[in-house]
Write a protein that binds this DNA or RNA. Sequence first.
DNA 1: TATGAATGAGCCTTCATTCAT
DNA 2: AATGAATGAAGGCTCATTCAT
Lengths: 206, 206, 206, 206
Amino acid sequence: MPASVTISRRPAKTSPATDKRELILRAAIKLFANRGFFHAQVADVAREAGIAAGTVYLYFENKDDLLISIFERTMEQAMEEGRQALTHVSDPIERLRVLARLHLARLGEDRDLAVVFQVELRQSIKFMERFSSTLLQDYLRAMRDAIADAQRAGQFRQELSATFAAKALFGALDEMATNWILSRKRYALAGQADDVVDLFVRGMTP
Amino acid sequence: MPASVTISRRPAKTSPATDKRELILRAAIKLFANRGFFHAQVADVAREAGIAAGTVYLYFENKDDLLISIFERTMEQAMEEGRQALTHVSDPIERLRVLARLHLARLGEDRDLAVVFQVELRQSIKFMERFSSTLLQDYLRAMRDAIADAQRAGQFRQELSATFAAKALFGALDEMATNWILSRKRYALAGQADDVVDLFVRGMTP
Amino acid sequence: MPASVTISRRPAKTSPATDKRELILRAAIKLFANRGFFHAQVADVAREAGIAAGTVYLYFENKDDLLISIFERTMEQAMEEGRQALTHVSDPIERLRVLARLHLARLGEDRDLAVVFQVELRQSIKFMERFSSTLLQDYLRAMRDAIADAQRAGQFRQELSATFAAKALFGALDEMATNWILSRKRYALAGQADDVVDLFVRGMTP
Amino acid sequence: MPASVTISRRPAKTSPATDKRELILRAAIKLFANRGFFHAQVADVAREAGIAAGTVYLYFENKDDLLISIFERTMEQAMEEGRQALTHVSDPIERLRVLARLHLARLGEDRDLAVVFQVELRQSIKFMERFSSTLLQDYLRAMRDAIADAQRAGQFRQELSATFAAKALFGALDEMATNWILSRKRYALAGQADDVVDLFVRGMTP
DNA sequence: TATGAATGAGCCTTCATTCAT
DNA sequence: AATGAATGAAGGCTCATTCAT
């Protein structure tokens, strides 16, 4: 199972343009994580990426677009990864487990990215809504579907709303991620995925 | 039980200074919730409060202090309320239920305050750390203690860490609050407290 | 001669109003000297004087008026003192000596006052012009007259302009005062009066 | 002799950056002289220089830095000029004369600069100390050394401290400069250098 | 007289974005 | 494509002054 959870960086289509975009996004993740979105200046991001400030605007609309692009790029990769990992997993409970592991593994392997996702992306209702209408539109749906499947299969109690249950599970995972970035202790975030799912599965079992 | 959960605003010590402070904080909550902390101007807050911009600085150090004060004032009230509500509740599981209800009830009765807590206060690692070193220092401890009590009483399984379980429970509740403010549907947030606790209690039951 | 130079504080007409005015001026001298005119706030002066901020405006027009009043009060006292000290001194050179001693003695006995005179009063052309059109209108005239007398008496060369000479003498004394306040060493400023006058008298002697 | 006193503006290294810096400094001198440092706004300086307000901050730290830079740039030029002018002058008294002429010539040829030096730079003890620890550290030392040389050569009396004498001479020159800017009459400031030095030399002659 | 809370005009500084090169 | 100097709007904060009590 661990194999299916391993995050496999697909060899990106390495056009020069894609490379530079990527370079800038990585610099942005680092800066946003360490200084905060508002306090990180576009010029700082450019310097970190080793380019001129103006060049950023050849690849991104504006500063907000940097944050949004970090989100979208990461979500796309995660979704693709999720799809692949779930291809041959049919048991609903196992599917939940895979999703949870991927979720925490991705954040746990890049603390800066985790900070951007757990903190900076929640700057404002505006981002939150964008965030929640896609991440929770897709990720939560995947969870909800798995839960509903388990309910239909009699593995889970049926009186609880699958949507509600998915939110609760997501919330617990999300809290683990937030706690991890705020904690001074260095532990493996992904290791908590199974514990959370176990707790949840027991809570749902008839 | 509902009685003990009802939030009773104590008649504040109405010195003129306290009144004005309160007036400003309420205006700040409204503005921060609707425009976001960064986009709300101090002058806007003052106008909303019906005072001059400079007056804000007679009661608060700076703009950040407004946000911090909203947090601290609310936490103090919540803590006091929690202490009172728990005075005569000895069953650990019931204590969790009371805490969860109070948590969601407080946010659910003031959407602006909820937005400030669920979104604006998580602007930056700086606030997050402050937030988490007090809220989670006190609130999570209360939950963890109740869980540990339940474990000792044999009501909960003992192999899971009480701290971990408290985080999971908090995360689920927190997610309910965040979903509530982002949702266009108007439903009673507090109504979800029992569902979350039930799910969790089942998950912890031996 | 020292006796005539001794500064004798006349017992001020101690009406309550005069007292409070004086109290405020003393506070202002202290604050202006230590923080600078622009950085000293009216509220600070009031606090130092032990009164409320608004009360300052019962005795002075505005903040500038405080500075101007310090100047005028001090000049009046100095002029009166000068007149008295010169009453029985007829020798022109001796008169110069008395003026120089009084000048440096007054500043030398109150460092804060000296700072206000040597630094703060020279804030702006506006103050400078006011300063120079009265202080130098009266003080320099007294020096110039003594020099002219000495020229007529054949004690001083006649080819130099008395006005020019008076400025040079004043400039040298002024520099001693400025150096004194900027120096970390604590020496008697008044002790330099005779040296300056000696140097000058020799320079003027035929 | 006049030749050595003539101020020869070296053609500045005209890099674009140096040019703009210079442009801003000149605008600042004009504004500070005419409105005073505190009343001149950075935006005014920028407008006078024909640039945007923000551009000032590409060349200077802050508003104070403008004032300090005017001082430092002028002092550097003056020091260099002084060194050059004194290269072939060995007679101590003549050296004093050259220094005095340069001092008054520089101020006398640019009234705005003179106002900044005689008035605005003496705003506060802070600037005064910076001013005096460099200007008087270098300029007064040059005068003191010349005086000491003259004393050793028997041209000047030896009982007076060279440091004291240098201050007196500086004070007299400084007063000429201050009087000049405050006077409505337009006369050649530099023309007074020799008169001051003459008076002083006579005063020092055995 | 005295108070001190309230006022609000004013200004320095930042920084996302543009654009001539 | 890339640069980076220049822009200029925007806003937090200060503090002299007022005035109801």
